[in-house]
Write a protein that binds this DNA or RNA. Structure first.
Lengths: 134, 134
DNA sequence: TCTTGACCTTCCAGTTACTGGAATTCCTAT
DNA sequence: ATAGGAATTCCAGTAACTGGAAGGTCAAGA
């Protein structure tokens, strides 16, 4: 199977597949013409990687997941620990974004958004104004 | 004011401040010894940048925000549009993460996480199994 | 047979926003 | 004089690709 077909089958761009070979995630065979020749197992691995990446696992985590996948004697606890760590990371990201979102939404709501220069958003970014005390 | 003091005042690492000069966000003066000499306005700009970055605006958005900030004739509508676009981006990110989170949490819940190799997480990543039809 | 076009190959550079580190200079204090 | 702590510049690396150039391969059509 050539890289174009594999790209179509796995949903990954050919560029990405070459990159994954570069960093040692897969090792497709080569034909006499120098073209990569993908076995079914390669395609399977790429689909696995595509799915893991789409769930937000990093490349290094994917590498670990793949080796766990191929280890018939793995402990599911190892996989679960990895997934749980990732889950916590996602939760932290969501919490951080929700925080930003709240602040930003409030600023946006307070900005009238017309032709005048007066703007609570910029005021906020500029920081506390030196209060003109009477 | 020297870069170390400014770093302390703005909360930005000195490295980052130099980087911001590199990409043209600020233009501090130079002393005879070659050291950067920051005016109050520079420090103010850096604080502005730090705040904008902490709200998740990209560097290029910060550049625009800064120029809007310095334009006394700006329309607040321009600022609001930028902030709203950012808000939508944050919402999309949150939605995407929430989706991931849901899938991942379910997989984690289904994985017993013990010493046995059987693992729903890996099963999911591996994709649909060829059903052994009787 | 030749040519066209769609593939494939490699390699280099660019993306975002810094961060680390090396080599060097400067200032201050003892 | 010397030691230390800052300041300077420049180069490289991070994550995970992506774009593009230059060139080789292959199947089909005139």
């Amino acid at each position: 199977m050539k890289i174009g077909d594999v790209a179509e089958a796995s949903g990954l761009p050919a560029k990405t597949i070459r990159y994954y070979e570069d960093i040692g995630l897969i090792r497709p065979a080569r034909g006499t013409n120098g073209y990569r020749d993908f076995a079914a197992s390669d395609v399977h691995k790429l689909a696995f990687l595509a799915r893991a990446r789409s769930l937000g696992f990093s490349i290094e985590e994917c590498r670990t997941l793949l080796s766990l996948y191929e280890d018939r004697d793995r402990a599911s606890a190892d996989v679960k620990a990895l997934a749980e760590a990732h889950l916590r990371r996602i939760d932290r990201k969501i919490a951080a974004l929700a925080g930003l979102r709240g602040t930003l939404a409030e600023l946006v709501a307070r900005c009238h958004g017309d032709a005048r220069p007066d703007c609570p958003i910029l005021d906020d970014l500029a920081g506390p104004k030196p209060a003109a005390d009477a």
